[in-house]
């Protein structure tokens, strides 16, 4: 029995009686943990655009699998992780210049549209929304099985990242010293790329391939603004991602006109904006209030 006096938000109290909300929260929790943790290192290692590129690969992979009649998740995870490993092996230590990256990934997206066209023309069973669903996510459309799988994969990604956190942090801060100390820098970097691929594919199911970048970058950048120490920042990044996810899902439930992926990304961006403006605000308040020492 739920107490009556809380009339202001009766809907919110019953939120979890809807299965689709429960599934959304289950999957969203796994995704937010994975993206928050992986994203922290992406910002630290300046690999945010790698995450962007991999989310494009997620789009093409999902639609290729659909076009050839497989489960979308097979293409989503398979292609994204394969591209991540390929980038790691090709890129060696350096990075390709932005013209090359831009070219390859514009073409990859073009290929994704091609598969989308094949999918919608060949299987004419009312799938015009397949493209938008992959691009912008469909978290409230998950069933129990895929929500559980998303949660398990998200937790697994988070656990592997945490296990790797120490050497990865060392390699990110000073690669040469880490290598001299016997950290297998190359392998750690490669495993981390695969983890970005997993996180991008995970996030693509919830907020969509185009918006997963916001979930990777915004909470992590906010955490790095707020906290200096790396492990505290890592935890804060995951916490902020979870806050954006749960808050966004709740907001979208309270105001059904807001699509969940918009609400999640809007909250994540707002968190970053607040973190970026906070020191400035503090300075202004400090100057207005007590006299400076």
């Amino acid at each position: 029995m739920i107490a009556a006096p809380l009339n202001a938000a009766p809907g919110l109290l019953h939120m979890f009686s809807h299965p689709f909300i429960r599934y959304g929260f289950l999957a969203g929790t796994g995704v937010a943990l994975a993206c928050g943790l992986v994203g922290y290192f992406a910002v630290l290692r300046s690999q945010v655009f790698t995450g962007d590129a991999l989310s494009h690969a997620a789009f093409t992979g999902a639609l290729a699998a659909l076009a050839f009649g497989f489960d979308a998740r097979l293409g989503l995870f398979g292609v994204t992780v394969a591209v991540a490993l390929g980038m790691g092996l090709l890129g060696a230590r350096g990075r390709a210049d932005d013209v090359v990256i831009g070219n390859v990934f514009a073409w990859l997206l073009g290929l994704g549209v091609f598969f989308l066209a094949i999918y919608t023309t060949r299987r004419s069973s009312g799938n015009g929304a397949a493209g938008p669903a992959v691009l912008f996510g469909s978290i409230f459309g998950l069933n129990a099985g895929s929500a559980r799988l998303a949660l398990i994969l998200g937790l697994a990604t988070a656990v592997v990242l945490l296990a790797l956190a120490r050497p990865l942090l060392f390699a990110s801060v000073d690669e040469a010293v880490a290598a001299a100390q016997g950290v297998p820098v190359r392998i750690v970097g490669l495993v981390y790329l695969a983890l970005i691929g997993l996180a991008a594919a995970e996030g693509a199911q919830v907020v969509g391939a185009l918006l997963v970048l916001g979930l990777l970058a915004a909470p992590a950048a906010a955490a790095q603004r707020l906290v200096e120490r790396p492990y505290a920042g890592l935890a804060l990044s995951a916490g902020l991602a979870l806050a954006a996810m749960w808050g966004g899902l709740t907001l979208s439930y309270a105001a059904p006109k807001l699509p969940p992926s918009f609400a999640i990304i809007a909250l994540a961006s707002a968190i970053y904006a607040a973190a970026a403006l906070l020191p400035r605000l503090r300075r202004v308040v400090g100057q207005g209030g007590a006299s400076p020492p």
Binding site: F49, G51, L210, G214, Y272
Partner: peptide
């Protein structure tokens, strides 16, 4: 990270 956030 800012560019990524703005794009998303």
């Amino acid at each position: 990270a800012v560019v990524g956030t703005v794009q998303a």
